[in-house]
Simulated assay, not measured.
Amino acid sequence: MKLITILKKLAVACMFATNIINASNTNTIDNIHFLIPGGIGGGWDSTARSVGEVLLKAKLANSVSFENMSGYGGGKALSYLIETLKKQNNTMMINSTPIVIKSLQNYFPQSFRDLTLIASIITDYQVLAVREDSSLKSWNDILIKFKKNPRKLKIGGGSSRGSLDHIVSAQIFKAAGYDPKLVKYISYDAGGKAFNALISGEIDVLSTGLGEVLEKYRLGKVKIIAVTSLEPIKGIEDIPTFKSLGVDMSFANWRGFFAAPGMSEKQVDKFANILKEMYDTTQWKEVRKKNGWSDLYQPKKEFRQFLEEQEKSISSLMKELGFL
Rank of each mutant, 00 (worst) to 15 (best):
N140G: 02
I142D: 01
R161N: 10
R161E: 13
D141F: 06
K152V: 01
W139P: 00
P150W: 00
G156K: 13
D124F: 08
A129D: 12
D141I: 06
R161I: 06
T123Q: 06
D124N: 15
N140R: 14
K145A: 05
I167A: 05
F173T: 10
F146K: 08
D141S: 05
D124Q: 14
L136C: 04
L136S: 08
S135M: 04
D165W: 15
L128P: 02
H166G: 02
I155C: 02
S134V: 13
E132D: 04
L143W: 01
S169K: 09
F173D: 04
I144P: 04
Q126K: 13
I155D: 01
V127Y: 14
I155N: 02
R161T: 07
I172R: 12
G157Y: 11
L164S: 11
A129L: 03
S169V: 08
W139C: 01
V127P: 09
T123L: 02
G156V: 09
A170L: 05
K147Y: 05
R131H: 09
E132I: 14
P150D: 00
D141M: 02
F146S: 02
V127D: 12
S163L: 04
K137E: 08
I172A: 03
Y125S: 06
L136G: 03
R161L: 09
K145T: 08
S135Y: 12
G158I: 10
